[in-house]
Design a protein around this nucleic acid. Structure first.
Lengths: 356, 356
DNA sequence: CAAGGTTGCGCAACCGATTGCAGCGACGGT
DNA sequence: ACCGTCGCTGCAATCGGTTGCGCAACCTTG
């Protein structure tokens, strides 16, 4: 350990008084000069600014926001910081906030309602001007009661509504059009000739429930009825794939719809190790469109969701809501099926087309 | 747009005065009660606490830190929030901070010294009690001058020192033992029988330079001398692999050492598309040990670096430095070679062992 | 030269908490 | 009945900015 000056708990910072003193004016004038108040003469303003840079003056945001009642801080509560999906959203959110001069307080990886409540409380303590929630376990409805009205953006499927497909969405909700994505996936699979389709989701993520339902609905549209709980959905979507792979191998469906890319990729690997090859033995599709789905082997057929755009949109909407005082309507961002190699035409289709 | 009450720019929050009034005591007593000051009678304390919960009182951190000169805020400046490597570090850092009651302000994806300077300034404005920097483009030396002495942790290779292999490290530097990792990789490759080894790095990341140098040194130890700039290093390590893959295919080395896993994975894919198979035609090794290296096909031989541990360590060290006032010595976390499928014994070795 | 207008700046209150110090009431001792 | 003590609270200053209001000096105009 290298000792540092212990008697300097917090080296006194240069304050506006110091700056004013050096420039020979009062603190008030110093403050006004730095904010370019036209009532202060140009000469004085220049002198103050000079003094400020000489002294390396840095304003104290805490003091400012105490008086001005503006903190320029946003809160972002999200499921995870380290997975590709949420990482992208968080990064885009942070970037957009930064560009508008806002700082972001994060609360990630909580996974429990009680912890999320505490996080929201901390946000309030720091007087965040707005809060965004992405893939929280807390319901948006509860969050509404804990955040100042009109200052909450929700970046996740609205379970209540999406489950029923396109009901009116709560203002402030921003999401990718997962329902459409699922439709496209199922249409694609059915078009490829598959009928025996199974689903593997996440036991914990609420959006997985939405997904599974959507898959069921889409399949029904095609007159296909399957047991969507044929295989267990691991709690953590992509862990423990080694445990369910044998189950799948023992009761192999034609195609597998996965909750997310990471899971699809992990499952492909686990299956490979029990001798099931993709796409030869089974077709697999993912969801999200992360980078690794692009460079895996086989490359993964998936739904590309505009994650960065979503993060940016959430931040921009929040900031706009703060400045205009109007809560933006919900937004649903379009998604796009990306056909790659992990799902090939079913043998039956290949055979019949060879016959025909 | 849904209008919300425009005349409520910032609904007045409940203050200690309100709590005190309701409990029939002064603000001072209310404050003391909430912090369980023994000088206040138990009855009064209970009454105040009751009033506080009744009123949903939430303290104002800005006011508190103004007076108490403690913000309980940390700053984390890092290269990127959305890649698996930095995402893991950031997530672990945030978790550890949260556990100690600290909030984290992020500045990510800046990539320019000027922007990083501004970020550090913003941190100062918010009176962060400590700052950590991971993979910054700014030199740690400069950062030292911009952060309060003893309140900076650097989570990246110290170019000056590591380039020279194990010189004394600057206090406050925490890093994974990349030099050892590179040694292990090279030893492994050479042990597998490879001699014609090439390197592909990143044009922008400073740590890539360190890596490349380390590879050269390690090879020299084995009496192998190669041109480490045989192939161009793309700016963004994993983008544009499609552009260099043809070059590699046209001048195929026996083995390829990559700067990081993401790049190795991307390169494997690009090479596959120009007809070069891994590990049959070329051996590839990565670095970092991200999840996807574990589930790729072929699974990637790489060096596992304790990223989460690093993030946690940085945060814990920073917090300790804040409370004890002593700057921790540098720490170098051990890394571990993980042998998987992307690098198989060289044909020559296989042949000779078959002969022998 | 006086009245009215500008211009440029300072005084002091305020934001919401923390905290040193002082005061007040009750109680015991004599 | 008076005084000292102790326990419990309140007063007021303080942190570092922002801002309404007022004031002085200077300039213009009749």
């Amino acid at each position: 350990m290298t000792a540092i000056d212990p008697d300097e708990p917090l080296a006194r910072r240069v304050t506006l008084d110091d700056v004013g003193r050096r420039a020979g004016v009062s603190r008030a004038t110093a403050s006004r000069s730095l904010s370019d108040d036209p009532r202060i003469s140009v000469a004085t303003r220049a002198a103050v600014k000079q003094a400020a840079t000489d002294l390396h003056y840095v304003p104290n945001i805490a003091a400012r926001s105490l008086r001005a009642q503006r903190t320029k801080i946003l809160g972002l509560l999200l499921a995870n910081l380290s997975d590709p999906v949420h990482g992208q959203i968080a990064a885009a959110f942070e970037q957009e906030a930064w560009r508008s001069g806002y700082q972001v307080l994060f609360a990630a990886g909580l996974q429990e309602v009680e912890l999320e409540r505490k996080a929201l409380r901390v946000f309030t303590e720091h007087a965040t001007e707005g809060v965004a929630m992405v893939s929280s376990v807390m319901s948006p409805a509860e969050a509404q009661t804990r955040v100042r009205p009109g200052r909450l953006m929700v970046g996740q499927p609205d379970h209540e509504r999406v489950g029923r497909y396109r009901g009116p969405l709560t203002p402030g909700v921003m999401m990718t059009d997962d329902a459409s994505g699922v439709d496209q996936v199922v249409d694609h699979l059915v078009g490829l000739g598959f009928r025996d389709i199974a689903y593997v989701g996440s036991g914990t993520r609420a959006s997985s429930t939405v997904h599974r339902e959507a898959v069921g609905v889409a399949l029904e549209r095609h007159g296909i009825s399957v047991n969507l709980d044929r295989f267990p959905s691991p709690d953590d979507a992509w862990r423990r794939c080694d445990e369910i792979a044998p189950l799948i191998a023992a009761d192999l469906p034609e195609a597998l719809v996965c909750y997310e890319d990471v899971q699809a990729l992990a499952l492909m690997d686990s299956l490979r190790r029990v001798g099931v090859r993709t796409p030869d033995d089974v077709a697999i599709v993912g969801f999200d469109g992360i980078l690794f789905a692009e460079i895996s082997s086989p490359r993964l057929t998936t739904v590309r969701t505009p994650l960065a755009e979503l993060g940016q949109l959430i931040a921009a909407s929040l900031i706009e809501a703060i400045s205009t005082g109007a809560l933006p309507d919900a937004r649903v961002l379009p998604v796009e099926l990306v056909v790659r190699e992990s799902a090939q035409p079913a043998r039956s289709v290949v055979a019949s087309s060879a016959n025909g």
